[in-house]
């Protein structure tokens, strides 16, 4: 323990609460409170109602939720496949090539998402690959953005994997493909599910690239939230935002359940 005096400890905890609550807990509480209100002109929201959720769970909003879920699941699975493949291929490369591969795959993090959106828009509004106006342009951009994260986390997990396991498998006569399927991938499973959850959450909340790309019939939740707040419907927007958070958390929770099972097997 760093601080021994009881008084100093309480003082520090008070500082923590004063900083932590308003900065981090309050915004979430405000959005949650607003989603159940019609007015907010005092300290507390007023006009309690569930009408916002009525609007946020059907019609346009329901469609947006489906759109977001489909986009996020597709993009995560694609990103996980490509990222894992790249990480596995990279692990077998010489150091020089591996560095290069890592650098290329991490680049989408450094490039602003808006620019990724713009570039995908520019590239796929013209032949040979005409994706503009389809859902695939949104999914491609999301995949590009989250692949970097999938690759990073799988690479890190691979670097931590004790080579003794694959060597034991090889000494028992298992060929590289068999080692991959029966030893390395199962051992990576916890990290893979963690990466999948990360990719899913990122894609669910993606706004920057999506704003540049979304066709009218493929509007994900963040865009809908922006549209609502832009036209002044802040309370409906909050309800949709709560739906977005809840959907994300629900999927993350399910994924983490799989992860616990995988690591305790």
């Amino acid at each position: 323990m760093l601080v021994h005096s009881r008084k100093a400890r309480w003082a520090l905890w008070a500082v923590f609460l004063v900083l932590f609550l308003p900065l981090f807990a309050l915004p979430l509480l405000v959005v949650l409170g607003a989603s159940f209100a019609t007015h907010w002109s005092g300290v507390l929201p007023s006009g309690p109602t569930t009408a916002n959720y009525h609007a946020a769970t059907r019609g346009e909003a329901l469609q947006a939720l489906t759109t977001s879920l489909v986009t996020a699941v597709t993009a995560s699975l694609l990103a996980l496949t490509v990222g894992t493949w790249a990480a596995l291929a990279g692990a077998a490369l010489k150091k020089r090539y591996r560095r290069l591969l890592d650098a290329v795959f991490v680049l989408p993090v450094a490039v602003p998402s808006v620019v990724v959106g713009l570039s995908v828009l520019v590239a796929f509004s013209q032949p040979p690959l005409l994706l503009n106006g389809t859902r695939w342009i949104v999914i491609s951009a999301h995949t590009v953005l989250v692949t970097a994260f999938a690759h990073q986390s799988v690479s890190a997990a691979l670097a931590r994997l004790d080579p003794a396991y694959e060597q034991a498998a090889a000494s028992l006569g298992a060929r590289p493909a068999y080692v991959l399927l029966r030893v390395r991938l199962p051992l990576l499973l916890p990290s893979l599910t963690a990466a999948a959850g990360l990719c899913f959450a990122l894609s669910m909340g993606e706004l920057s690239a999506t704003m540049m790309l979304y066709p009218p019939d493929w509007t994900p939740l963040p865009v809908l939230i922006y549209a609502a707040t832009d036209r002044g419907a802040l309370f409906t927007g909050s309800a949709v935002a709560v739906v977005l958070m809840a959907a994300t958390l629900l999927v993350l929770f399910a994924v983490s359940r799989i992860r616990t099972r995988a690591s305790y097997r």
Binding site: F24, L26, P27, L28, V30, V31, A34, W40, P45, G197, L198, A201, M204, G205, E206, L207, P222, I225, Y226, T229, L234, G237, S238, A241, L244, M245, T248, L249, L252
Partner: peptide
Amino acid sequence: VYLSFPSFLITLALLFI
């Protein structure tokens, strides 16, 4: 958990505050 939420939620909350 906080890290898995999109950034614009913060601005949305600040709009109310």
